[in-house]
Write a protein that binds this DNA or RNA. Structure first.
Lengths: 142, 142
DNA sequence: TACATAAACAATTATGATTATCGTTTTTTG
DNA sequence: CAAAAAACGATAATCATAATTGTTTATGTA
């Protein structure tokens, strides 16, 4: 596996991703950085996210409304995706999945690198909004 | 929720999906059907899959190499995605996820519609191939 | 520090899956 | 069967992501 060189912008992509828990899209990261670095390219975000993923520094959580969502926290944990506003929350309370990968490996004679556990539904916020206010997915909700 | 009318081709899409366990792409279904119905449109496959999904007759499993993969079996079960050949297998041996959705609902004050559990790794077939033979993803492996 | 090499960059273009449009055909309903 | 509604094929549009290109920036060595 290739070793990545240092670059200010590359670091910035990883920093932004690590500084948030919204599990953003590539575009969201781009928008955050183009204010700081006026010459920033969306391609740079995609390129580096995909390199980071290759290196195991970043993980993809789910595709929501056709856009990939990224997470800078690579320790195993589950996620909750709100079908209404598109927000993604971490689920850290499930520690009973230990040994699951090994069990699958034994039963199916395969090699398991990881698993993804994702719950889909309506988040607490949206649940308590009046249904008339249910906002369509937008940038704000990432 | 809208009730769907009958149409021969609509039925064919669902039948093809239900008759296989490869968790195909829309294109795969299209290729199967255009031999039987020479005038078949890929748009019809997409249109109906998305209607079926809306009706709960079909479920999307994962996006592999940029293509959505569909399943006609809607009872809760997990999947294994091979990162090498792109094949998807059913994992039916995990019955310990019962009550999981309710647990999340209580802990996070949300509404859980479903959850998706997906293992990623190298399938038994690919594991036993010599590494030189590791085929890139192609149509055949869908 | 200066040079050579490799990697990273912005900008642009290309790709390719999915969705929308629209005029025609099929299905439903009465 | 006729009118209305829905589904269709063909095609064009969208839009997220990937690849390309020429330039700039890091890195390693002398």
């Amino acid at each position: 596996m290739r070793k990545l060189n240092f670059s200010k912008k590359r670091d910035a992509v990883l920093s932004v991703l690590r500084s948030t828990n919204v599990h953003p899209t590539a575009e969201w990261i781009y928008n955050r950085l183009k204010t700081e670095y006026p010459d920033f390219s969306l391609g740079t975000v995609y390129r580096n996210l995909s390199l980071f993923k290759e290196q195991g520094l970043v993980v993809t959580v789910a595709t929501v409304n056709g856009q990939e969502r990224y997470d800078g926290v690579v320790t195993a944990h589950a996620h909750f995706v709100c079908n209404n506003c598109g927000s993604i929350a971490d689920i850290n309370c499930l520690n009973d999945s230990s040994g699951l990968d090994e069990r699958i490996e034994r039963l199916y004679d395969c090699k398991v690198d990881r698993h993804s556990l994702c719950f889909y539904g309506v988040c607490s916020n949206c649940k308590h909004e009046s249904s008339a206010e249910k906002a369509p997915l937008n940038d704000a909700s990432v």
